[in-house]
Amino acid sequence: MTVTLGPTPTAGAAVPLATDPSTPAGRRRTRPRPGLLVAGAYLVLLVVAAVLPALLAPGDPLAADPRATLAAPDPAHWFGTDQLGRDVWTRVVHGAGHSLTIGLAATGIAVTGGVLLGLLAGLAHRFADETLSRSFDALSAFPLLLLALLFITVTGPGTASLLVAIGIATLPHHARVVRGQTLLVRRAGYVEQAVSFGLSRPRLVWRHVLPNVLGPVPVLAVIGLGEAVLAAAGLSFLGLGPQPPSPEWGAMLSEGRNYLQVAWWMTVLPGAAVTATVVALTVVGRHWQARFDGRRP
C-alpha cells in the first residue's frame, strides 16, 4: 500500500500540507477576511468559556429548576432549559471546557506521538523507516471510530479512555505527515548545502531539519483539534464518553435526543456549538496553512 502524503482526510485537511510549487504565493494576496475574524472571535470566546465559564454564564450547570423544565429559549434562558430545568446556555458554556480539554488532550497525544514517531521514521535508515511506516499503515487500517470502540471495550467508557482512544486513532495521520515532511526537508537543497558549511550531523538536524519539519506542526494540530472535537462528540453521543450529568456537548446531544419533538433546543444548540467550534478551527487552521505554504519556496 502506498503511503499517501496528500490529503489524508480530516475535517479541514482538504488542502495538502506539502507545498505545491505550481501556485506561487505572490499571486494570492491575503486580504482581510471577515470569516477569519469571526472564527477568531469565536475561538477567543470559546477559550474564555473553557477557562472562566462563570464570566459568560454565572449559574450552576447542574442546578435543576423543576418549575421551568423544557422551557423554550427566552431572555431568561437564552438557550432554553432541559428536562430537569437546567439552563442549556449555562451547560453549553460549561461544556466548552470538557469538550476542549478532551480535544486538546487527544490532539496532544496524537501530535506528540505523531511527531516523535514521524521524525524517527523520517530520519531513520531504510529498515526502521519501513517498519514504522507499515505500523502507521496498520494502525490507520482501523476506522477511527472502531479503533476507539476497541480501545473503550478494553478500558471501559469514560473521559480518559475516550481521549486516549481518539489520540491513538489520529496519531498515524500526524506521524505520516511529519515523516513525509522530514524526508522532504532531508533531501532539500539547503540541507545538502549546509553539509558544505562543515556542520556536524546533530547540528544539521537541530539547526535545519527540525525547525523546518516542526514548522507546520501547529497548523496540523489546529486542524486536528477540530477533528478530535468532532470525534469526541460522536463517541460521547454513543454514551462512551463523560457520563451524565456532566455537561459535555456530545452527552448533552445524546440526552436531548429523547426530547427532540418537544425541545429542539436541547439538541440543536449544543450541536451548533460543536459545529461552530470545528468550523472556526478549520477556518483558522486553513488560513494559517495557506500563509505557511506561501512562506515556503
Binding site: 475535517a11 479541514g12 477540530g226 468532532l230 462528540a233 460522536g234 453521543f237 456530545g250 446531544l253 435526543r257 427532540l260 439538541t267 440543536v268 450541536g271 460543536v274 459545529t275 470545528v278 468550523v279 478549520t282 477556518v283
Partner: peptide, 14 residues
C-alpha cells in the same frame, strides 16, 4: 465546510 464540521448524528437528528 458546514457539512464536514457537523457531527453526522446531528445531521441525522435534524
Amino acid at each position: 465546510l458546514l457539512l464536514v464540521s457537523t457531527p453526522p448524528f446531528l445531521i441525522g437528528i435534524v
